[in-house]
Amino acid sequence: MKKLINDPKNVVDESVAGFGLAHPDIVTVSADPLFVARAQGASQGKVGIVSGGGSGHEPLHAGFVGFGMLSAAVPGPVFTSPTPDPIVAATLASDGGAGVLHIVKNYTGDVLNFETAADLADAEGVRVVSVIVDDDVAVKDSLYTAGRRGVAGTVVVEKVAGAAAERGDDLDAVAAIATRANANTRSMGVALTSGTVPHAGEPSFVLPEDEIEIGIGIHGEPGRERIKLEPADGIVDRLLAPILEDLPFASGDKVLLFVNGMGGTPLVEQYIVYRHAAEVLAEKGIEVARSLVGSFVTSLEMQGVSLTVTRLDDELTELWDAPVETAALRWGR
């Protein structure tokens, strides 16, 4: 395992501490219980937005704390949901009197810990509503699974919910926007290599030099199929087809196209992927109205990408465009 870390046990604490040192104008870090909140504190009268989950997906979620997006983020251990205590603390710190939205990726651990935290925060008098993100089409949603996983689409949900909260929507309205963003978002990813969980010390899975995993999860969960490495355009086709089929997206739709790097894949490759994805959408008469390219929801140093497509209506577009000032996403101020 080759990483720029000190003791594997301190990876999250030290990284979050560094994050706080680097962005003192945007965030403040609570070390115990560990959470990251806006430097300016809760906005009085506005809905607070808290997200969180296992670490190893940076900049998700702490990189999205700031004006127009999250009020606070709760980083768990690497790939492990945080416990309820820090979630409760982050929730209380984010309440400006209008209640708090929890944005939770659909993993059993995250759902259960946020559920407990919501109960505890409720008991402290803070109203909490939760929205579950489950955008990953690689996993079948059925009675016989834990349901779809939440992956890169989380960025879209957090951005539009944050903008809705910032413009003064009430808790139910913000939750409705987040739910609508999630309902219109689909994602799927591919891995070329595996990340290595620091305390495990070995790659989460092993891919032979000529194989890739289609439908990978952001914790290295195996995907739909393992195939031989092929040209980028073919891989994009394999990711995009199930995404487009699923909603389904149709000619005339306006969309956000989001190419997300998994942590170890450089931008030069991400833009090659973007190029073909944009071509395919154009052929199908789907208009790419907005775009995002970069490593926003990662899986440690995994090489690979995911594609996310969100169907935009006027309101979602306006909320996407609204000013945001976070460490990882910034525009309009």
């Binding site: 296992g54 768990g76 251990p77 492990t80 949901s81 945080p82 416990t83 309820p84 205590d85 993993y107 059993t108 651990g109 259960l112 810990n113 559920e115 407990t116």
Partner: peptide
């Protein structure tokens, strides 16, 4: 356990 394990197994 609830306040230190996290993940699925912590709450369970």
């Amino acid at each position: 356990l609830i306040s230190t394990v996290g993940g699925a197994s912590g709450p369970l």
